[in-house]
Structures are given as structure tokens and as C-alpha cells.
């Protein structure tokens, strides 16, 4: 599905569905309908990414953008169903908002299309770094170009991105529910609150059935990443999904304790170690070439996946932990 072909009915209908679901999500009356419509939007967006020839982004959007974000929103919206001051927006305001939004979007689209249509300044060669990037990928030890870019050509970007996740996890640790933060709980929270109310047996059965499958799926995603779409981020998010399922269904008991914090540190520490190794062995930070580059990348991806899973789970626990 090369981007140059003209737009088929599938892409057009998906694009339309995206706009309509987005408008519905933005102007929904209740929080819960907003969250559910957001999930529908996420599904459409994942399919759209796949259809325009970006499978990695589609997978990431599905697992991270819709899966984990959906879980975060879903849980928070149900724990706080009614906003403190729910003002009924009138129909006129909704129409005005939609018109205004569409106007700004159209203006932005017009200027962007004009800018994109103009031939690239001066240099005649095709736009983008496709040629150079695909030529350089074999040296990175992985075949899939996206993973090659993420973990070798632009690995410093991915390291800083892990630092962003570390920052989010630190905020989660700071706002962990009191009973979790390991500090002396005054009078100790009631036992039931400690374990979280047990979900009905059918849910516990479903989770104990599905969790191993999703774990297997996460592992498969991780190792597929070197040859086809997949990789540490999607695998990490699938891992987080398992943790969230286990926590909410009461099958297991996760808390932001020393073990979780240890997992949070591991990923960035490993990445910096690889960076330092590149400096010591080669002559530049994060240098990763030669025959064992592939194995080091895979090992690093495993640790990154675990840390990404732990970070997203920590954020879920902090935002959805039972405090009341």
C-alpha cells in the first residue's frame, strides 16, 4: 500500500470514521461515553495506520495509544463518574465548537498541503531518508528498519524517551496510594482494601485464562521486532496490560514497592550501560556495530520491555489505586 496510490474507498471511509468518532468523543455529554468513544477512535486510528503502510505505528497505537491509555481512562472515569461541576453544554455551543475546530483544521490542512506539495528545496533526491536509512540498517544487527532506527541509528532518542517514561514513573511513585508507598500506614488500611475487592469468579477465570496468552504475545512481539513490526515498546505495553488485568481482577496484588521501583530503574540503567560500553569499546556513546550488535540489541530490548511494562503499570496504580 505505497502512499503514492490514489485513495481507495477503505482509506476514505476510515478517515471519515476518524473525524466523526473524534467529534463525538470530544462533545460527548458524560465522561464514560467520552472514554468509550475514545477507544473506538483508537481502534479506527490503529487500522488507519496499518492501511497507509505503517504497521509498527499501527501496533503501537493499538497496544499503547488505545490499550493502556484506554485502561487508564476507563478506570479513572469509573472511579470518578460524576465531575464535580457538570455544566450542560448547549447544542449551539457544540455546533460552534465543531465549526471552529473544522475551520482551524481546514486552515492548517490548506497551509500544510501547500507546504508539503512544494518540491523539496534545492536537492532533487527523493524526500526523506528512506534510501540512506535502509542502506544503513544491515550494519545495525537487526533487519527491520524501524527497530534499526529506534535502537541504533537514533538510539539516543529512544534513551531520552525512556527518561520521559522514568519521569512519569517517578511522579507515580510520588503519588502512590499511601498504603502502597511502604510508609507506615496509620492504623493500617482494612484488609479488603489491601487486596482490592475480589472480582466475580468469571472475571478471575477469564484473567487467569488470558494472562498467559498475552504474556506469550508480549514475548513474541519482542523477538519479532528484529525482523518484522514489533519491538520493546509494544511488548512492554502488552506486559503492562497483563499487570493491569491481574491487578484489577484481584487475581494478583501489585503495589509500587521496592520490587516495582527496581524494575523502573533497570531499563534506563541498562541503556546507559550499553551507551558507556559503546564509548569504551568504540569511540562514541551508544556505538553498537559488529557481529554481536544484534544480540546486545535483543538483550537490551528485553530489559526495556520489562521497564516499560513496569512504568505503565506504576502509572496505572497511582492513578487508579484505591484511596478511598
Amino acid at each position: 500500500m505505497s502512499p503514492e496510490t490514489t485513495v481507495g474507498p477503505l482509506q476514505l471511509s476510515l478517515a471519515l470514521a476518524l473525524i466523526v468518532t473524534a467529534a463525538a468523543t470530544l462533545y460527548s455529554r458524560h465522561r464514560l461515553t467520552g472514554v468509550v468513544l475514545f477507544l473506538v477512535f483508537g481502534v479506527f486510528l490503529s487500522i488507519y495506520w496499518g492501511v497507509i503502510g505503517a504497521p509498527d505505528v499501527a501496533l503501537a497505537e493499538a497496544v499503547i495509544g488505545t490499550g493502556v491509555t484506554g485502561a487508564l481512562f476507563g478506570y479513572t472515569a469509573t472511579v470518578m463518574p460524576r465531575p464535580a461541576h457538570d455544566r450542560r453544554g448547549s447544542i449551539a455551543r457544540t455546533i460552534a465548537g465543531l465549526a471552529g475546530g473544522a475551520g482551524i483544521g481546514a486552515g492548517l490542512g490548506y497551509f500544510l498541503t501547500r507546504a508539503a506539495a512544494a518540491p523539496p528545496g534545492g536537492s532533487g533526491e527523493p524526500v526523506g531518508l528512506t534510501g540512506q536509512a535502509t542502506a544503513a540498517v544491515p550494519a545495525t544487527g537487526v533487519e527491520h528498519p524501524i527497530t534499526g532506527v529506534l535502537l541504533n541509528l537514533r538510539s539516543y532518542d529512544t534513551l531520552m524517551e525512556m527518561v520521559v517514561l522514568l519521569s512519569a514513573a517517578t511522579v507515580a511513585v510520588a503519588f502512590a496510594p499511601r498504603s502502597d508507598a511502604g510508609s507506615s500506614t496509620r492504623g493500617g488500611a482494612p484488609a479488603s482494601e489491601q487486596r482490592g475487592p475480589a472480582a466475580p469468579p468469571i472475571v478471575r477465570g477469564f484473567v487467569s485464562l488470558v494472562a498467559p496468552v498475552v504474556l506469550l504475545f508480549a514475548a513474541w512481539l519482542l523477538f519479532a521486532g528484529s525482523t518484522q513490526p514489533g519491538g520493546a515498546f509494544q511488548a512492554g505495553a502488552a506486559l503492562a496490560a497483563v499487570m493491569i488485568l491481574v491487578q484489577t481482577s484481584g487475581v494478583g496484588r501489585l503495589r509500587i514497592g521496592p520490587a516495582m521501583i527496581c524494575l523502573l530503574l533497570l531499563g534506563v540503567l541498562a541503556f546507559i550501560a550499553v551507551g558507556l560500553g559503546g564509548l569504551v569499546l568504540g569511540d562514541a556513546w551508544l556505538l553498537l556495530r559488529g557481529e554481536h550488535a544484534g544480540t546486545v540489541t535483543i538483550a537490551l530490548e528485553c530489559i526495556l520491555a520489562v521497564t516499560i511494562g513496569a512504568s505503565l503499570a506504576a502509572v496505572f496504580l497511582a492513578s487508579a489505586g484505591r484511596r478511598r
Binding site: P200, I202, V203, F206, L209, V210, V213
Partner: peptide, 12 residues
């Protein structure tokens, strides 16, 4: 998986 998910969510 879809069957299991549909059944559980319908029950909930």
C-alpha cells in the same frame, strides 16, 4: 479470545 472477552464483558 474474542469469545472469552465478549462473554466476560457481557456478564459484567
Amino acid at each position: 479470545l474474542a469469545l472469552a472477552a465478549a462473554a466476560t464483558s457481557a456478564y459484567l
